[in-house]
Design a protein around this nucleic acid. Structure first.
Lengths: 340, 340
DNA sequence: TGATGTTACGAAAACGATTTCGTTTCCAGT
DNA sequence: ACTGGAAACGAAATCGTTTTCGTAACATCA
């Protein structure tokens, strides 16, 4: 078993002081050429690596960033996470991932677990529980301590911090406009309750598109699931009782499930009914027919979030100016909507 | 901006020594009741939390575990990660995630990034690049330093450490046996080159099942993709030139893509051709028809890996005994195979 | 020769917490 | 009154680095 070696060992072994070793390894001009070479050679030989923990303690910088997301088995979040990882790693940062599981309590616990100096800043998407409860004190505490925080996708305007979102409203607007241009008359929306910020915005965009094209906004054409979990019964009932020729869904799973349902009823996609789903994920790509999707640029979002956070972490000045970056969604057309 | 408070601040403010504060906050019997109360109250008031970095330095324990996986936008790995998270968090550990991107170099870099005391141990699945190169010196270095390491799914027997795998061979065997029992004669295998340990084992299981049932093992029925990335052209050519009535695929995507392809050619699933895929992920569940899958118990795998690692980390003794846990796969039957 | 300047290195404080030994004070026991 | 021993607290070392500030030895210059 090879021992891990410290400055002290090198110093003792070579009969010099710890400070000399430290400086020599940093190639300081202060140290004589001979001594430097000797120390560097020794360090290389024994594969010396500075202890990160000690360095962190000294610098008050951990080079770790904490990411708290509601769920990891979810294409969009993993995509964002990849973006974060990419940028962070390139800058020499590590990413500590915590899952809130859509629960307020877990979100709080996770934040506290990281709050004791383990990280230099947070990147988060709010859990459904937190948004429902509308309680952001745990975020406030963090920002009040001056720890940088970047919120993405699921954000709140009750907290002053940097944010990255896509224009969810515009995404829905795009989709519904496409439906209308294709001559669809009964455009349904499958979404969740409005406490999720993204659902609220998407519903608003849906509504706006209808109104802007002189169509009725009919609550009966909206199915609101209590959460992002699939409610198969609810969806089935909805399609049994509601006549519809286009469906916009706030996530892939609702859309895919609905497609299979109406296909089983003998409807043809996209001739009889067309579909668009939010999140251009793996399901949209591989479903049959392929699902036209509102792409959310998850990876880019992650990169931007990481960049904003690291910029804040590394900027010495305590400017209290926050920025919200809004990414524009695009429609990725596949076979679930007619070609023009 | 609230300042973060340290033992020193409390000590100074209350006119006692740092040691007294430390002990008081740990409810030590050494400290008088009055003093203890005073200190604890003050600490609560100012929301004192011990600095993790300092504690880590003192204890030589970070309570962080490093997870290195090839890809995060991949259902199986995220499932495992969730299992790891669950167990680790419950034990008060944080998880640092690094992505090797299937590259040997990135894997090495990530390991080194964590190797300097940032973590108490590693959980890893080998990257394709590493398995191809067959070079495990970076792992050896780590184990030689006595840092605990648990390998999962993509493992190697060139390294002595704890491992968790599913019985890939048995999974393929199960699937092929099912095909044979259903009367299939031309059973294809879509896999990758054999340098990936899982592909090798699955191919072996496929072969064994055929031989055990007195059927020919025909290389022409095997399509080997160079990597886990989809090779659409290759798959199309394969189905155009090869007559087949059953397909076992080493991952979901190959299977789903193939299903769409043969459906487009007018074949009926499962009447004319049936499909089984490895990894019971989201695609299998939501494809049409639903894809019968070999479930890999990713979450359980993650939990076991985390448990093995934390056990090793926390056991003082330096026993050099390693264990390999083998999970048994199960077949999740859906509509891509006929019902019996 | 004495003042000044380099060069090359070491001592020590600091980061924040833990822990091992003291040390002081006070009181009981004889 | 003297000893012994709790009780309550503090000093200091320690974890491994970094960094500031000395300082010794030697060279330079007027």
């Amino acid at each position: 078993m090879k021992k891990i070696i410290t400055l002290k060992h090198i110093a003792r072994e070579l009969g010099v002081s710890i400070s000399t070793v430290s400086k020599a390894l940093k190639n300081s001009e202060e140290i004589g050429a001979e001594t430097k070479e000797k120390i560097q050679a020794f360090a290389k030989l024994y594969n010396y690596k500075p202890n990160n923990i000690a360095v962190s303690l000294k610098n008050r910088r951990t080079k770790n960033i904490g990411v708290i997301i509601p769920d990891i088995v979810h294409h969009f979040f993993t995509t964002v996470l990849r973006g974060i990882e990419n940028y962070a790693n390139a800058q020499g940062y590590n990413v500590i991932v915590c899952l809130s599981d859509e629960s307020f309590d877990k979100e709080v616990i996770n934040m506290e677990l990281l709050a004791n100096g383990s990280i230099d800043g947070y990147i988060m998407a709010l859990s459904a529980g937190t948004q429902l409860r509308n309680d952001y004190n745990h975020l406030k505490e963090v920002t009040e301590q001056g720890i940088p925080l970047v919120l993405f996708d699921r954000v709140t305007d009750q907290i002053d911090c940097d944010k990255v979102v896509i224009n969810d409203r515009e995404g829905a607007y795009l989709a519904v406009t496409k439906f209308i241009e294709d001559g669809r008359k009964k455009i349904a929306l499958i979404t969740t309750e409005d406490h999720l910020s993204v659902s609220r915005d998407r519903t608003a965009g849906y509504r706006q598109a209808l109104l802007d094209h002189n169509m009725d906004f009919d609550e009966k054409l909206i199915l609101r699931s209590p959460s992002m979990e699939i409610d198969e019964k609810g969806i089935e009932d909805f399609f049994n009782t509601t006549e519809v020729d286009a469906v916009l869904s706030v996530n892939e799973i609702f859309a895919i499930h609905s497609m299979r349902l109406v296909q089983a009823k003998g409807l043809r996609i996209p001739q009889d009914i067309s579909f668009i789903g939010f999140t251009d994920g793996i399901l949209s790509k591989y479903s049959s027919p392929g699902l036209t999707a509102v792409a959310q640029h998850g990876e880019q979002m992650g990169e931007i979030a990481a960049q904003m956070l690291i910029d804040k972490v590394e900027s010495e000045k305590e400017e209290e100016t926050y920025e919200t970056r809004v990414l524009e969604p695009v429609l990725v057309e596949r076979q679930s909507t007619p070609k023009n």
